Computed example of a mutant assay.
Amino acid sequence: MSSCNNSIPQPLIFVLAGIPGLASSYGWFSVAFFLVFVMTVIGNVTIISIIRVQMSLHEPMFLLLAMQSVVDLSVVSVTVPRMLGIFWMNAKEIGFNACLMQMFFVSFFYVMESGILVTMAFDRFVAIWKPLSYTAILANNMLVKIALAVLARAVAVLTPAPILAKRLESFQTHTIAYSYCAYMAVVEIACGDVSNHIVYGLMVTVLSVGFDLFFTILSYGLILHTAFWIPTWEARGKALSTCGSHFCVIALFYSPVVISFLVHSLGYHMVPHVQIFIDNLYFLVPPMVNPLIYGVRTKQLWEQVLQILHCLED
């Protein structure tokens, strides 16, 4: 329950606070965020282009990587321009309906990426468990079905968010203490009984991130178990090396969520601007770093990148 002595009706416009307490550093933040945005676009467009052009890369692992790159581009497209608007032009106002749209798509793409990551973990398990049947099990029609299932889940679990938020009638303030519209950030400033919103937020977390993290850990447990029975150390190391890039991406993607969860569970209270900064990392760092990890650690992609650079030099 949250009660308000001086509540305001549902506003036509919300004000995004940016990163409270760090307004004097917005110039530096804007440079960092802009560079992250540019590197993310260049890296992911390069990955998508290479996979699209090279027929030899039209296999499950790389097609899933292309899907991930599309989602990464979508994530930064719905978050970073708004943040840069705040830092550069003090453009903090956002319409109520526009806020609901951003709220939906930010969470939608995050849940999509989480679903793709667990699918990639399953892909690596199949590659080690049944290497000879790998392409048959994960044929193109199966990948399409998996992609549609990931998409359908994201739509199903997140469509209620803007509908529920639209029903909030009064608020403590029209200022959202974030640099983007997030569902729980809007709920936190609402008046009245918001228990159903909190339950819904927990359900989304469990049915998406919690579910995916559990099955990702399970997949890697099975991968280690399967690899243990490979007779030679050389073959075992080669099999596990194919999982290295994906494991790094998983650790990077879930670490901020796990850290934030543990901090709250242990009763610690972060300084607000630190909490908001960590929340921004959810949507900034993985999309930028993922192409670098895959490009460096995946031989086929690295060879194509080197070929492109060589052509540019000529």
Results as ranks from 00 to 15, higher is better:
Pro256Ser: 02
Cys4Gly: 03
Leu151His: 12
Phe283Gly: 01
Trp302Cys: 13
Phe14Asp: 01
His310Trp: 15
Phe228Glu: 14
Ile308Arg: 05
Thr242Ile: 05
Asn196Pro: 14
Glu93Ile: 05
Arg52Thr: 10
Ala66Cys: 15
Asn5Trp: 03
Phe228Asp: 10
Glu169Thr: 11
Ser69Ala: 13
Pro272Tyr: 11
Lys166Ser: 04
Ile8His: 08
Leu143Ala: 02
Trp28Tyr: 08
Phe29Cys: 01
Arg82Thr: 04
Ser2Pro: 15
Leu64Tyr: 02
Pro256Asn: 12
His264Phe: 03
Pro20Lys: 12
Ala98Gly: 12
Gly115Cys: 08
Leu22Phe: 09
Leu207Val: 10
Val53Ser: 15
Leu100Arg: 11
Pro287Ser: 05
Val274Trp: 06
Tyr254Phe: 11
Gly18Pro: 01
Pro60Ile: 08
Lys145Asn: 13
Ile94Ser: 02
Ala161His: 02
Ile308Ser: 06
Ala165Asp: 00
Val38Thr: 11
Gly267Gln: 14
Pro160Cys: 09
Gly21His: 02
Ile293Tyr: 07
Ser260Pro: 15
Tyr282Lys: 04
Asn290Asp: 15
Phe261Gly: 00
Ser208His: 04
Ser69Met: 08
Leu164Ile: 11
Ser133Pro: 01
Val150Cys: 04
Gly237Phe: 09
Val257Ala: 15
Ile94Met: 01
Leu22Cys: 04
Ser3Tyr: 14
Met89Thr: 06
Gly221Arg: 09
Phe215Cys: 02
